[in-house]
Design a protein around this nucleic acid. Structure first.
Lengths: 150, 150
DNA sequence: CTTGACCTTCCAGTGACTGGAACCCTTATG
DNA sequence: CATAAGGGTTCCAGTCACTGGAAGGTCAAG
């Protein structure tokens, strides 16, 4: 089957499938005489494995390890469990971080009346002191890098 | 003051300060005769504002907007409040996503005995069906892009 | 005078894609 | 048979927010 159908069946866009192949996550697909990649059902299962692991937050490197373990009938499940538990640790850390951000933002938002007046507890909170400022970031010029638009 | 001291006082690394300047987030620093950038206390406050906003998860674009609002003495606090509330929405979404990942991973980990046996409920869960597989990702070759190492 | 710490610019790489250009293959229709 | 639509192919560039490194200029101390 063509890459487009493989994409539909697996949920991985064609570009991404090619990308996964290019970085060696999945093996090179066989080709038809036309040069088109040709996929079989088992390739779809690999892609589905990848998409599930990615949706659980595993990095491509992790997924690569998981695929190797999946393919290794002699592997021990302990390795897999370790990877999964590391992931849970990362997730817990990230959640804690986000909750701390959320709490701070909520506090600031609660203090802000949100009307047309120019005093703003949120900006004051961000500035770290209550005095207003007049340093302007005007005259933004062209630059080699992409500009931050605002 | 030199960029190094500005970095220490603000908590933003020299490289990052130059980067912020290059993308137009902060204005171009004045220069000494040597060509070195020269910072004043008010620049440090801008950098501290940026670092606080970044730590709350605002993107550089958001920070750019916040700086503009901060500098605009005629602005309304409603704009700031809106930005902050959007951020809270994003954070809530991300937290929900992470908690769903966490729950799935916890389930899988709980089912996995994590010993030397080769059956692994985590891999089975990722594969979406309980049958074992033999598709090997061998013969990973050199490539123009960076390879995923495993 | 030399050392070492600091500064300068510029280019490249990160992760995990995604968009686009320029071109080839297949199939259906006028 | 020409052609147009809708696949596919490759390669290059861009995203975000930095970060590392090379190659070189400046400065203060010993």
């Amino acid at each position: 089957m063509n890459i487009g159908e493989a994409a539909k069946l697996s949920g991985v866009p064609p570009k991404t499938i090619r990308y996964y192949e290019s970085v060696g996550l999945i093996r090179e697909a066989s080709r038809k005489t036309s040069g088109y990649r040709d996929y079989e059902p088992k390739d779809i299962e690999v892609l589905r494995f990848v998409v599930r692991a990615r949706s659980l937050g595993f990095s491509l490197k992790d997924v690569c390890n998981l695929l190797a373990l999946w393919n290794d009938t002699h592997r021990s499940s302990a390795d897999v469990k370790r990877l999964a538990m590391e992931r849970i640790g990362d997730i817990d850390e990230r959640i804690a971080q986000l909750e701390s951000m959320r709490a701070t933002l909520s506090l600031l938002v609660a203090e802000c009346h949100g009307d047309e007046r120019s005093t703003c507890p949120i900006l004051d909170g961000l500035s770290g002191n209550p005095a207003p400022h007049d340093c302007r970031g005007d005259e933004i010029k062209e630059n080699s890098h992409g500009q931050v638009h605002c």
